[in-house]
């Protein structure tokens, strides 16, 4: 099977951490703050769209407001499938990373 990409993994984790009211703008802000990288809107949108199609994310529509030019908000939430996918990645990561900092780097 295909693992999540790094980008997807980070986006899923961000949504998981934010618990509720995660939508494109604040997910991007969260990622910008915690990864020290500039995320473009496309960088965030593409994983969101793909994982919605796979079924890792579900979405609900919020109210429109003037600041958004009269457009509604689309909120994303993790599904059970998404949660399982994260869990699987974590297991792999745990195994692979185990003891990394204690190992000496030999020339």
């Amino acid at each position: 099977m295909k693992y999540l990409t790094r980008k997807e993994e980070l986006v899923l984790l961000a949504i998981f951490r934010m618990e509720s009211h995660a939508y494109l703008v604040n997910i991007r802000e969260y990622l910008n703050r915690h990864t020290n990288k500039k995320w473009t809107i496309g960088n965030v949108y593409v994983p969101l769209n793909r994982m919605s199609k796979i079924g890792f994310l579900e979405s609900s529509i919020g109210e429109p407001n003037a600041k958004r030019g009269g457009k509604a908000i689309k909120y994303y939430r993790l599904t059970q499938l998404g949660y399982d996918a994260l869990l699987e990645i974590k297991k792999v990561n745990d195994v692979m990373w185990d003891g990394f900092d204690t190992m000496a780097f030999e020339e």
Binding site: Y23, L24, V25, R28, I41, Y45, N49, I61, P64, K67, R68, G69, G70, K71, A72, I73, K74
Partner: peptide, 27 residues
């Protein structure tokens, strides 16, 4: 720009994407 962007975006999400853009722009 906003209008062109609106046309080119995927049907299902174009409203929300444009909205997200607007929000960041205003902030």
């Amino acid at each position: 720009f906003r209008q062109i962007y609106f046309w080119l975006c995927p049907d299902e999400d174009r409203h929300y994407l444009v909205g997200d853009f607007d929000e960041i722009f205003h902030t």
